[in-house]
Simulated scan of single mutants.
Amino acid sequence: MIRGARADLPVLLFVPGSPGGSELRAMRERLAALEQRFVVVTMDRRGGARSFGALDPTPTFTVANETRNVLDVTEYLRTRFRRDKILLVAHSGGTIGATLAVQESPGYFAAYVGVGQVADPTASDRTQYADTLAWARAHGDGELVARLTQVGPPPYTNIYGYEPMILNEDRVYGTDNGDALIENAEAPELGALEKVHVLSGFLDSFDAYYPRVRSIDFKSQVPALGVPVYFVAGDREVPARVRDLGLWNAVLKAPRKELVTLKNAGHRSMFDQPAAFVALMERIRDAS
Score class of each variant (00 low, 15 high):
Val89Leu: 12
Arg137Asn: 07
Arg137Pro: 05
Gln103His: 13
Gly140Trp: 06
Ile96Met: 02
Ala136Met: 00
Phe109Tyr: 13
Phe109Pro: 00
Gln103Pro: 10
Arg147Met: 08
Glu66Thr: 13
Ile96His: 00
Gly114Thr: 02
Leu144Val: 04
Gly94Tyr: 06
Asp141Ile: 05
Tyr112Leu: 09
Thr132Ala: 10
Glu104Lys: 15
Gly142Asp: 11
Arg68Gly: 11
Lys85Ser: 10
Val89Pro: 03
Thr79Trp: 13
Val73Cys: 09
Trp135Pro: 02
Val113Lys: 03
Pro106His: 07
Pro121Arg: 07
Asp84Leu: 12
Gly107Val: 10
Gly116Asp: 02
Lys85Thr: 14
Ala110His: 09
Val118Glu: 03
Val63His: 01
Leu148Ser: 04
Tyr108Ile: 11
Tyr108Phe: 14
Leu148Trp: 03
Lys85Tyr: 07
Ile96Tyr: 04
Gly97Ser: 05
Ala119Asp: 03
Gly97Gln: 04
Val113His: 01
Thr62Ser: 07
Arg68Gln: 13
Val63Asp: 02
Arg147Ile: 05
Tyr76Ile: 10
Gln150Tyr: 13
Ala119Pro: 06
His139Cys: 06
Leu87Tyr: 09
Ala138Gln: 10
Tyr129Asn: 03
Ala146Lys: 15
Phe109Cys: 11
Leu100Glu: 02
Thr95Ala: 04
Arg83Glu: 11
Asp120Gly: 11
Pro106Thr: 10
Ala130Pro: 07
Asp120Lys: 11
Trp135Val: 03
